[in-house]
Amino acid sequence: MEQYHKLYLYKRIVQAKLFIDKHYSKNVNLEEIADEANFSKFHFCRLFKDAYGKTPHHYLTQVRMNNAQRLLKLGMPIAEVSFSVGFDSSTSFSALFKKLFGLSPSEYQVRHLKKQASFTANPLHAVPNCFTEMYGWKKSNI
């Protein structure tokens, strides 16, 4: 019986995590996430942290920022990125981004786009030399 109870608990925590993965771009809050899993807020925070090693809020921020990095790499304007990952204000988004990664979203984007342009011009710059030699790319016209 205890085993079934635990399994039910695991599934509810997973459900909450998948809810964050799906709704990170919306204005989701902790109460809503805890409700989704049928937990009280404090009980939920503790269980989530035990399971994933971070609070639901920390995890939500991580998902948002990972997606922000992905969108910045595609060249999306900063304001659009901040809105797309669930921030109301691009100023607070930029401040948090800089705090977490040590550079502003625009610096990150410029740096990445430059790197991408260099890889497009010379794809071999993306690959360690041992692979370019083993796979014969060095001799080909890549």
Partner: peptide, 22 residues
């Protein structure tokens, strides 16, 4: 749930595709 690190075409049917655990 990994992130794409590098994704660069290396000819017609190969890419240099690397991912990183979050």
């Amino acid at each position: 749930g990994f992130n794409v690190h590098t994704n660069v075409p290396m000819g017609p049917d190969t890419r240099w595709l690397t991912v990183t655990p979050p």
